[in-house]
Design a protein around this nucleic acid. Sequence first.
RNA 1: CGCGGAGUGGAGCAGUGGUAGCUCGUUGGGCUCAUAACCCAAAGGUCCCAGGUUCGAGUCCUGGCUCCGCAACCA
Length: 694
Amino acid sequence: MIHAEPKRTLITAALPYANGPVHIGHLAGCYLPADIYARYLRLCGKETLFVCGSDEHGVAITLKAKKEGITPQQLVDKYHTLMKESFEQFGISFDIYHRTSEKLHAETASDFFKVMYDKGGFIEKTEEQYYDAEQKQFLADRYITGTCPRCGNAGAYGDQCEKCGTSLSPKDLINPRSAISGNTPVLKTTSHWYLPLDRLQETFLNDYINQHKDDWKVNVYGQCKSWLDAGLQPRAITRDLDWGVPVPVKGAEGKVLYVWFDAPIGYVSATKAWCEANGKNWHDYWDKNSGTRLLHFIGKDNIVFHCLIFPAILHAQGEFVLPDNVPANEFLNLEGDKISTSRNWAVWLHEYLHDFPGREDELRYVLTSIAPETKDSDFSWKDYQQRVNSELVSILGNFINRVMVLTWKFFDGKVPAYNAAYHTQDQQYRKELKYGFHVMEEALRHFRFREAQSELINMARMGNKYLAELEPWHLIKTDKEKTASVLHVGLQIAAALSIAGRPFLPKTADKIAFLLNLTFDKKLWDVHFFESLEFLGAGHQLNEASILFKPIEDEEVQKQTDRLEQIKKDNESKTATQPTALNAVKADITYDDFDKIDLRVGKILEAERVPKADKLLKLTVDLGFEKRTILSGIAEYYKPEELVGKLVTVVANLAPRKIRGIESQGMLLMAGNDFGKLYSVGPEQDIEPGSVVK
RNA sequence: CGCGGAGUGGAGCAGUGGUAGCUCGUUGGGCUCAUAACCCAAAGGUCCCAGGUUCGAGUCCUGGCUCCGCAACCA
């Protein structure tokens, strides 16, 4: 969209869910780009507000709290504090880092709901749901366990059986029980409010998304388009739960707003909180006609919520400004594997800050260099070391140090005078620097932070080149005046780096400014400023030279990769310990029950992958008396060729079932758990296929 | 034919129909102010494949192959 210059910019970064610490994937995905952009706008003197906060509601929080034996509030307090402190130390320049468990947020979300409710913006649907009479509460899907109608697993959840993976609805469960009390729940009617996304798609979203076909990133637009093409469905925005923002309607006691309705409103409540503390009016930031430009920085997993659902909510509410752009990033992998909180496969921010004190900018630099702006990218410690050592240390740090040391050596640490007679010498460099600055600015405006940052390093590179060409260490012997001129320009380049580097490397920029003894009392990022390339006057006293970056040693990198190796091993060996601790023994069965199962030894004759299925193998198994086709979800753990000839245990009388169009006539017994590898269970010695297992 | 993204020198990426480029790495040279850092140069590419549009395709179109997410599948 083509805009008039916005009055102000409101930047939001995805609210991190308060059930774990922040990792490098979060940083590269949205917090760093948002921070760079916010810092850039502020330097330009533009009115900017950068808000974020912890997302603290939802069933996942209550479940995790229960597991840890603490209250949801205690759980979110713990992670909120951890995240807030890590962000701060890392230098993410939120104007406010709020949280959704604050009273102010509840009021805001509540008001928001009420306005929409009064307008008839929701559809109310009444359904029967399970209710725990003793605990006097409705049971969320996850709070109901029972026997899976598909596979007979007694520990299936109301939304899914984790044994066979079937997605369920609570009413499908045989013999349902409340996970809280163990009681048998009763069906009771309850009503919920739905956001009519189908209707909103027709009246609003189709046009809204289409409008942004050209100014949104292709991956973002593409993702939205595919959701719209599939057709949106009404979505429930309330839940029967006691953790969250209460639904502000009479008769809705015990109901809270669904976390996905309440979380983005957290942007609004964070803004309010900041405005209250700073004597501002929050309406200036959120009102439809406020002239505010709203930007959501998120990771790709959030696209549907920020590009479709939240705008739909804002539109339906009617008084709010809509997102102008949603620059979503793809995902960052770690050493080739997907980052995973549950598998502990991550570089945690708080651990990095602890292991690499004072090296925040190094991580910022690397993460911005490899930011997954257009496609998934990969972080590796070796790459981290290489980028820091060969770019930050060798090019940027070294240039600053050279120019500092030379000035102290030849001019007692005072900025020497420029002599226009030597103008032709540095004209070309001035031109290129100005051009580089221009490129950087263009890139920043279009959220291409990787490119913008690499331009910064290019400027430092030019500085090095300038010194190498003019050789002030030779010149000083023959022409002091010219040497003065050369160093004068060199120092201006250093100053330019300190300013241009602020959005990317704030702590380094401050250090350079300190070395140069440089202070500014007006807005820093001004085109004319860079035109003149005069930041330091002749005679200005510099501080003592000191080193900007230390190289990352091999041992430090080794330590980190060893740690990751260890985690990999731990995940694999969890098979032995975790499941027994986690999964309680199922209810007793009689011998007769057991006797119903016909277990046989089978020999795998053939094995092949099932097309278009990640986990499924199609096996031909010899049971002695006959050959069976059996499908098994073990493709991640076994290669087909490894299995041929293997003896395995087969449930021979399991009712046949069609999986992806192929009938599976039995089941292979495997040992393992959710985390680690699966191991087939077979006889120790070679034995006839078809032998009975008892 | 589920949905979306992506395939470009050893690695990571840029590339708007008009001479394929950048950073790292490698090799050779220069310099010695500087953190064994800096500067210059060279080698290294059937731009996934096959068709098509065009005077001209890495770029546009069609078909195929491969990779990554999501979905599905899973015990």
